[in-house]
Simulated scan of single mutants.
Amino acid sequence: MKYLEKTGLSKIFIIVFHLVGFVGFSIPHLHDFFISVVPFHLLLMAAILLMNQRDFSKNFWMGLVFIYLAGYGVEVVGVATGAIFGSYNYGETLGLKLAQVPLLIGVNWVILIFCVGAVLKKYFKHQRNIKSMLAALILVFIDFLIEPVAIKFDYWSWTDLFVPLQNYVAWYIVAFILMRVYYEIDFKKSNPVAMTLLISQVLFFIGLNVTAV
């Protein structure tokens, strides 16, 4: 019963926070406040995802740390060189930076990889390459939705003022590698709020693409 209560409350929190965020980002005079709480929103979603994780084994923590460091590391190289995603720079919305990259960007990678990974875990059970390829496609689609919103609200900006094709190709490759590692590490990948969080994020960015961009 306690488990069901925690899961149910977690799903309600996820939906409500995304709805409130959507309203806030859709109303111009509320932009500054809602932009200021973006880092706290990301941390809250990561905490809710973590609270509902069913496996806290050594392998789980290894996977989480690897995804965080790899996701953050590739962004550091990307910003410094422009050779991975194209030429871009992070704004102030995502908070504290190290090497010109917000520390929270690794958290964002963790949320995306663990959500998509948990949702797809029961499909193509013994075909990890196919599962990782599909997951990478989903992640590229999510990035496609995020880009216009991120540019408008100073998450990051592109030097040439448009998103290069290189970004989506690199996103697919990086996402595939991270998903492949995720599925290779042996831990229980079930998470009862992963689907709710993933759908809420997708609908949030679709809505903002329609109303605020």
Rank of each mutant, 00 (worst) to 15 (best):
D160A: 15
I84A: 07
S87R: 14
N129A: 14
I151Q: 11
L165P: 00
W158C: 11
H126P: 00
T81D: 07
G82K: 02
A83Y: 15
H126F: 02
G86S: 09
E75T: 10
L178K: 13
Y90R: 11
V140H: 03
V140D: 06
N129D: 02
V76F: 10
G106R: 04
I138C: 13
F144R: 01
N129R: 12
A175W: 01
E92W: 07
G86P: 01
I105F: 02
Y155V: 09
P102Q: 04
K152A: 12
K97E: 14
A170N: 06
Y155H: 13
A99Q: 00
R180L: 04
F176A: 12
V169P: 04
V79P: 02
L98A: 12
I130E: 07
T159N: 14
V169A: 14
V181Y: 06
A150S: 08
L165G: 13
F124E: 01
K125S: 15
A175M: 05
A170T: 11
D143T: 03
A70R: 05
L161V: 06
A118D: 00
H126A: 03
V101C: 12
L139G: 09
R128W: 06
K97T: 09
G73P: 11
G86A: 10
Y90L: 04
T93G: 02
V107R: 08
I151M: 11
P148Y: 10
I84P: 08
V181E: 03
M133R: 05
I111M: 15
E147S: 08
I151Y: 12
G78I: 05
K152W: 05
A135W: 05
G78L: 05
E147G: 05
A80P: 07
P164F: 08
I185Q: 01
F114R: 10
S157R: 09
F85W: 11
V181N: 01
V110G: 09
I113G: 02
K131L: 03
I185Y: 05
V101M: 04
S157A: 09
V79K: 10
F187Q: 05
A118K: 00
I113Q: 11
L161E: 14
N167D: 02
T93Y: 03
R180D: 12
T93S: 08
G106I: 14
D143Q: 07
W156E: 04
M133P: 06
I142D: 13
L69M: 15
A70H: 12
L137I: 09
V140R: 02
K121V: 13
A136G: 10
F144I: 11
V163M: 13
F114K: 04
E75A: 08
K188Y: 04
V77D: 08
I177L: 09
V110W: 11
L139S: 10
E75Q: 10
N108Q: 02
N89W: 12
V149G: 00
